[in-house]
Design a protein around this nucleic acid. Structure first.
Lengths: 144, 144
DNA sequence: TTGAATTCCTAGCAATTTTGTAGTATATTA
DNA sequence: TAATATACTACAAAATTGCTAGGAATTCAA
């Protein structure tokens, strides 16, 4: 039941962008240096966020990324779902395709649905702005 | 954020044992046949449950496994934690060793703690007896 | 107009974890 | 003593994760 580095890095990445939201476009290189994360790996993660329009970019010198909205308008849940795929504990709850026709009537699906709802409720109640505020007070260990 | 087959199989395995709780010792072979899960793999999963005394065993002919308590005395959370290790979304929340000393003061740890609490609350509120009752009405698809 | 900086895109790969298999030793019962 | 089980250990295939590599396309500044 682990969150992967993709989701965790995405949270740090977005928090970094939020903290520098008034500094124009921010390069991956500078984020990678500050956060001590591989540049090339960050590139792949931010691509996921760009595809869903959570961030926008320009190429070339002085290029980089910036948020498309105010930090208070993002939730942690949204960021995690874009990068992790889905927070569902089983594939059957992934949108679109229920691989098994009996699933709808299955005992355990009900449990996984409750777990998913509980997780979503938590992460959807926390905004990126909250992360920024808390980070300013507390810092970030980088390992979780 | 997926539950592995170990946890899912363990739930089916325990439900199977609960349904046959008055039939003496139940062999892995018969469970494997009914649930259509590899015998040898089930063996490894049930070993985890036996180690924590959720089930007891006897060897030899007519041997097998049975529950050590009434189905109503097990929670889904307990079964999952024994087989999955922990439901924590990050390693830093795993008991005993916090690998990073700054974690205690980290922004995101707080979030992961809330997620863990929410998940535990759900799975700890569902008993094995509930699974048995629902399974009798609804069945189990075997895929989640 | 040229060069530096930067995103964009694709492919691959090493390490780890998951999901099993296989074989043998040990115990129990009829 | 033969059949039936668990107990234990080791290994292996498959999938996923986490990351690396290289080059094309774009933009800006000197």
């Amino acid at each position: 039941m682990k969150i992967s580095t993709k989701g965790r890095y995405a949270l740090r990445l977005m928090t970094d962008l939020a903290i520098h939201k008034d500094d124009g476009y921010i390069s991956i290189k500078s984020i990678a240096t500050r956060q001590n994360i591989s540049e090339k790996y960050l590139e792949q993660i931010i691509k996921l966020l760009a595809k869903e329009n959570l961030v926008e970019s320009t190429r070339g010198a002085q290029g980089g990324y910036k948020l498309t909205r105010e930090p208070v308008e993002y939730t942690v849940g949204e960021i995690l779902r874009v990068t992790e795929g889905s927070l569902a504990p089983v594939a059957c709850l992934e949108t679109d395709d229920n691989p098994c026709e009996n699933c709808m009537d299955c005992v355990t699906l009900e449990i996984w649905q409750c777990v998913l709802d509980a997780v979503n409720k938590v992460v959807d109640s926390i905004t990126l702005q909250y992360l920024v505020d808390k980070q300013r007070e507390k810092g970030n260990c980088g390992c979780c």
